[in-house]
Design a protein around this nucleic acid. Structure first.
Length: 349
DNA sequence: CCCGTGATAGTGGTCGAGTC
DNA sequence: GACTCGACCACTATCACGGG
């Protein structure tokens, strides 16, 4: 077994694992097994690293003595045969009885583990495991653990479906107006809606997705337009020029600035905060782009607030995705920006 | 060509002010 | 008092560039 992680590394692993969203479901599903105080519930990532564990202080103390702690690696290459590592290697639910453990000090324990897969890609996300002293684990525990893992996969599927539903609600009117072959996909290429295109669940998008014309492996020449949370993909017809994306930034009402993105197929509107509206107006007035220091000078009157500028740009990018480019910060090439009114905020806090 | 260094950028977390 | 949102900080990643 390898050394554990520090708190920061552990938290980063938890976030990267994709399992944080389903931790509550796993805990609730296995509550009856760990409620008697003899067993411990463990969730590990795809490398067998323990991300979370829960149980009574008595059994947690026993687990501590085995090094079965948060941050520790329990893959097969670290501790040999055990439920976490073996479930990861075999890709199915397993139960490892006392002396089946590779490490002799683990022979007093029995563990049941089941893999959790990303329902979108099938890749392993991690393992849910119930472990305890050998005499306390019931033979059916492995079946229960497997069912709870399947439940977690179902919850992940629901999360993804909800995000696609949101995208579909925005894209559906545009697809209806368009009439030609087109799809609405999320930023990973998962299809939320399509029209006049062979049904499919996913598109392979370029690594650097940007508005305008691009070549997609399965569709050929396509025009991409940004949507909130994804892209509108229109299959290009012949040599038709790609339509420009036009952005209207309306600052006339200082309390309710608006940001409308228009393409050939329709439009969508965001209401940015006053600070974000100010940043967008600044970028609109500097089509050649601004460095973080230049933006700091414009926004705060000093050049050293670059970290704040970057943080705000990072948040803006979550809303506007491919409409913003960096190095220097600017609107993506091919995007036309029109501004009405003047921003209302400015200066330092 | 490799490595070290500095500049720049991205992102998560925290704090505080404002609002209901 | 709870909640939201803006501002800021800390840390990490990436890239360019110069020196050995």
């Amino acid at each position: 077994m390898d050394e554990g992680l520090d708190a920061g590394e552990l938290e980063a692993r938890r976030q990267e694992s994709g399992l944080a969203d389903v931790l509550e479901d796993l805990t609730r599903g296995l509550d009856s097994v760990i409620a008697d105080g003899d067993n411990i519930l463990v969730v590990a990532d795809a490398e067998g690293r323990v991300l979370w564990r829960s149980g009574s202080s008595r059994v947690l103390h026993r687990a501590d003595r085995l090094g079965f702690v948060e941050g520790a690696g329990w893959g097969e290459n670290s501790v040999g045969t055990n439920a976490i590592g073996t479930a990861l290697m075999s890709g199915r639910a397993v139960q490892v009885f006392s002396a089946e453990h590779f490490v002799r000090s683990h022979h007093s324990w029995t563990c049941a583990g089941a893999p959790i897969r990303d329902p979108r890609s099938g890749t392993l996300l991690g393992v849910v495991d119930v472990s305890g002293p050998a005499a306390t684990i019931h033979p059916t525990t492995v079946a229960l653990v497997d069912v709870v893992a399947k439940l977690a996969e179902s919850q992940l599927r629901d999360h993804h479906r909800r995000s696609l539903d949101q995208l579909r609600s925005v894209a559906a009117p545009m697809l209806a107006r368009l009439g030609g072959p087109a799809l609405a996909v999320d930023n990973d290429g998962w299809v939320a809606a399509l029209d006049a295109v062979t049904p499919r669940s996913r598109l392979t998008l370029p690594r650097q997705t940007a508005p305008g014309r691009t070549w997609l492996h399965s569709l050929g020449e396509c025009d991409l337009e940004p949507l909130p949370g994804g892209w509108l993909v229109r299959v290009a017809e012949g040599a038709t020029a790609s339509s420009a994306t036009v952005i209207d930034l309306d600052l006339r009402d200082s309390r309710n600035p608006s940001f409308t993105v228009s393409g050939a197929t329709g439009q969508w509107t965001l209401q940015p905060s006053p600070r974000h509206a100010e940043i967008l107006a600044l970028l609109a007035h500097h089509p050649e782009g601004c460095s973080a220091a230049q933006m700091s000078a414009h926004l705060f009157g000093v050049t050293d607030r670059t970290i704040t500028v970057r943080a705000e740009m990072s948040r803006l990018r979550k809303h506007l995705g491919g409409l913003l480019a960096a190095n220097p910060y600017r609107f993506t090439d091919g995007v036309t920006v029109r501004v009405e009114g003047r921003p209302s905020v400015g200066g330092t806090r």
